[in-house]
Design a protein around this nucleic acid. Sequence first.
DNA 1: GTCTATAGTCTGATAGAC
DNA 2: GTCTATCAGACTATAGAC
Lengths: 211, 211
Amino acid sequence: MPTASASLPVAPRKSFRETQFVVRAEAILNATNHLLASKGYEEMAMDDIAAEVGIAKGSLYKHFESKEALAAAVMVRLLDRTRDALEALPAEQPAIERLRELLRWTLRERLAGGVPHLPSTSRALRDSLMANRHYIDQLMSLSERIGTLIKQARADGALRADLSDEFILYSFYARSCDPTLDYLKSGDSAADSAVVEQMISSCFDGLGPGR
Amino acid sequence: MPTASASLPVAPRKSFRETQFVVRAEAILNATNHLLASKGYEEMAMDDIAAEVGIAKGSLYKHFESKEALAAAVMVRLLDRTRDALEALPAEQPAIERLRELLRWTLRERLAGGVPHLPSTSRALRDSLMANRHYIDQLMSLSERIGTLIKQARADGALRADLSDEFILYSFYARSCDPTLDYLKSGDSAADSAVVEQMISSCFDGLGPGR
DNA sequence: GTCTATAGTCTGATAGAC
DNA sequence: GTCTATCAGACTATAGAC
């Protein structure tokens, strides 16, 4: 058997350098995600990121051309992972259950140190993302998938008829980013789970005792 | 009848200058409120505020010793006004109705260009407020009043027994600041009112068709 | 290391309250 | 007419993107 790295265009082996480059980009994204979640966009300095990754500040710019681009990459990755989580749900599950599962996934993600979906923590970040084609594409794509779920759930009679799809979609995103989670999270995983379940329940069933 | 402005220490007339000082402080608070709501804390420069009020930047510091103090004054004023709105509700109204009314007041306030209650738009602002004694006092005072309403509503059976007072209180604040309002507001006052009513309804009754 | 943005200070000139 | 608050804006210092 000939070596795979011979002359065929198949399986183009990455050099050590190339691999390291990708690994490092990943590390930068992780550090940024962490700092973005803990300090917020403005308070996160490029120096902080470099320090957390353990590289020189200048090296950051080999991977991402600006702070905005770096933050956008983190948000795009979150959207991608959210879409994957959504795709991974069993198709035979009722739409409303999948919506609940997706909200659960999102809230757990935040408990694990992730950034909320809505960039509502910073006007500057929000504006920058809204001007980012790639981000907008991914957001539209995800919203379309969630929109489909909402339509299905509505057809199943699992959503209120007097609320528009749009209203439900935005509310869903808002609940994904609900600050209640930050205020009530304790670090105790059992207690945190209970909070997540209450948030899901209050989202779909409300705070009142039912109609 | 002797003239009122004779020699008695009663009715100490304010000089024109003193009145202007108070009026100006008010104007500064209004401008800051507006800019805070539209640009956010870090993107709001002191020069912006001075320009909007139409005074010199240096004069801002005659009224407020720092940007943080100015932002805090805006937030304290919001808390005060919220407490007043709460106090103004008829005592004979059921507690749950007063909670709905208060949420309605808050959302309308935001539609009118006000700042949301939770300083979630900026970590720096949040930290600064949390270190501000006056702000914390007002926040505690308001939260206590809302907490009392929640207890009453619960006693009336108007809130779910499986959700703690704390969870309900935080959820209430979160709904007051819900970004859904920003995304759905249209400027058309009839449509905006409908959005507010849907948000109140979805807060207490949920997105689902009821249990 | 460079450069920009901006919080916060200071000053001489000026309008207008008293 | 005197006096003082305010003005315009130059200036310093610092932080942080790049």
